[in-house]
Amino acid sequence: MLPISHLELAIGFGLVLIGMWGLLSHRNILRMIISFGLVDTGVHIVLVATGYITGATAPILDEAMQQGSAPLRMVDPIPSALVVTAIVIGFSVTAVMLAYAIRLYKAKGTLAIDAFTESKW
């Protein structure tokens, strides 16, 4: 079994839980967008923590890493690369949500979800 960092996993899952609580308990759209950002950040931390091995080195093959146990002593770069892409996508989704919240505020003058329940699509 590969030793992964349990502190980062706990922090990531904690952020996901706080964000989910915020999504389910608040009725303000802006607070829901912030909660969505917390969930997004927590998932990123969990993904990076799964690819990290405590005490391992960067995945650069050199003379010292040419031995047979090299994969056990290297950090997996795939989760980190995927998280970088997910961060960019998360920023763009947050920007779209904020732009939509601005449009809703201009239309109704409030960001409370209760004001939008009678809207007809």
Results as ranks from 00 to 15, higher is better:
Leu17Gly: 06
Asp40Ser: 12
Ala86Arg: 06
Pro59Ile: 05
Ala86Gln: 07
Val39Ser: 02
Thr57Val: 15
Ser5Ala: 10
Ile4Ser: 06
Met32Pro: 01
Thr41His: 06
Ser80Leu: 15
Leu111Phe: 09
Val75Ile: 14
Ala95Gln: 12
Leu98Met: 13
Ile11Trp: 02
Gly55His: 08
Ile60Tyr: 13
Leu15Val: 01
Arg73Tyr: 10
Ile29Gln: 02
Ile4Gly: 10
Ile11His: 01
Thr110Pro: 01
Pro71Asn: 06
Met74Asn: 08
Val88Trp: 10
His26Leu: 08
Val84Lys: 10
Phe116Leu: 14
Lys120Pro: 07
Pro71Ile: 04
Tyr105Ser: 10
Ser92Tyr: 05
Gly90Pro: 03
Val83Ile: 04
Ser119Phe: 10
Val16Trp: 04
Val75Lys: 01
Leu17Lys: 05
Val83Glu: 05
Thr117Ile: 12
Lys106Arg: 15
His44Phe: 10
Trp21Ser: 11
Gly42Val: 02
Arg103Cys: 11
Val83Trp: 02
Leu82Pro: 00
Ile4Lys: 03
Leu23Pro: 02
Ser35Met: 03
Gly51Thr: 04
Leu111Tyr: 07
Ile60Gln: 13
Ala115Thr: 11
His6Arg: 13
Val46Asn: 00
Gly42Ile: 00
Ala115Met: 06
Gly42Trp: 02
Ala64Gly: 07
Thr117Ser: 12
Gly12Met: 01
Pro79Asn: 06
Leu61Glu: 15
Met32Glu: 01
Ala112Arg: 14
Thr57Asn: 15
Arg73Pro: 00
Leu2Gly: 12
Ser5Cys: 12
Gln66Pro: 01
Ile60Asn: 10
Leu7Asn: 09
Val16Asp: 05
Thr50Val: 07
Leu82Arg: 04
Ala10Lys: 05
Val84Cys: 12
Val93Asp: 04
Ile102Lys: 14
Val39Arg: 01
Ser5Arg: 00
Asp76Leu: 03
Lys120Trp: 13
Val96Glu: 11
Tyr52Phe: 14
Leu111Trp: 03
Ile34Leu: 07
Gly14Trp: 01
Gln66Trp: 10
Ala107Gly: 09
Arg27Ser: 14
Ala81Glu: 13
Val93Glu: 07
Ser92Ala: 13
Ile87Glu: 05
Met65Thr: 14
Ala10His: 15
Asp114Ile: 08
Asp114His: 11
Ser80Cys: 12
